[in-house]
Design a protein around this nucleic acid. Structure first.
Lengths: 143, 143
DNA sequence: TATTGTTATACTCTATAACTATA
DNA sequence: TATAGTTATAGAGTATAACAATA
């Protein structure tokens, strides 16, 4: 037996709606990138590595809003798969420099194409590029 | 040494932006509700219990988009704190009926007031009620 | 003293399978 | 057989403290 449920007390709450939307989008991301074997966090690391060669782990973690301690396993996984490498830095011997490997560069080309198509679906669902831009602008104001 | 980082490859991605916004909003929620001892998921359960007396755990879990197995501990915690109770249902002896206790009803009044003020801050940050409504409408299209 | 990468650890959230008692 | 609540469990994600090497 199904029953009609009053959700009016929560479905107008921004935080609740953000959570539901994020869960739905990430679930779709996981399906779409399953063949490539890339999760959302890995995608962002690879893209930042591609666009910022030599970046330090600490700076990348900060840019992504994650703890640098939690970044270690994330980067180690990508390094084990031969997608990035962490070289010893020249100036400061404490820090590392993150670089894409050739295989990582190829992966970035692939996943950028997948992502472009994936994003286009959301844009269509939102109603168009103007709606997408509006959404991003509003989200930016929240954090 | 701080370095300028190119994040253009990810900061226009809806999923990434949703995650960052949701993390920020939830972190603020946790601080604001710390005195009441209520987390986001607990808030939604209490509100649904208030607005749907006698609702079954399975239906509530489905409405919240969580597994019913994971709902058990959530409801048990609220019951241990004396905020809800799970009564044996009359018709179907397999199912339970969730009800607020008097303490739970008082808690709901309190947290609704906290939430109203909390939400008003986001509305102001977004630019007004029209922008909030627009955001909710766009989020709804995503899940 | 402070910072970088790292390890260890605990806590939370989520997903899945299987059990029990009812239907 | 199917369903409701539950248990058990494993996998992620996240946060904090502390350490060795280096600055």
């Amino acid at each position: 037996m199904t029953r009609s449920i009053d959700t009016s007390g929560i479905d107008g709450i921004i935080g609740y709606r953000l959570r539901r939307a994020q869960m739905a989008v990430f679930a779709r991301f996981m399906k779409r990138f399953a063949a490539a074997g890339i999760k959302p966090a890995e995608y962002s690391v690879l893209i930042l590595a591609a666009d910022n060669p030599g970046l330090r782990p600490s700076d990348m973690a900060a840019a992504l809003g994650i703890q640098r301690a939690n970044f270690v396993a994330l980067a180690a996984g990508l390094e084990e798969r031969g997608l990035i490498e962490r070289r010893a830095a020249e100036a400061d011997r404490r820090s590392h420099a993150i670089h894409l490997t050739p295989a990582g560069a190829k992966m970035v080309r692939d996943i950028r194409m997948i992502q472009d198509k994936f994003e286009a679906e959301f844009v269509a669902e939102l109603g168009g590029p103007a709606e997408r831009d509006l959404l991003l602008k509003l989200l930016e104001k929240l954090g």
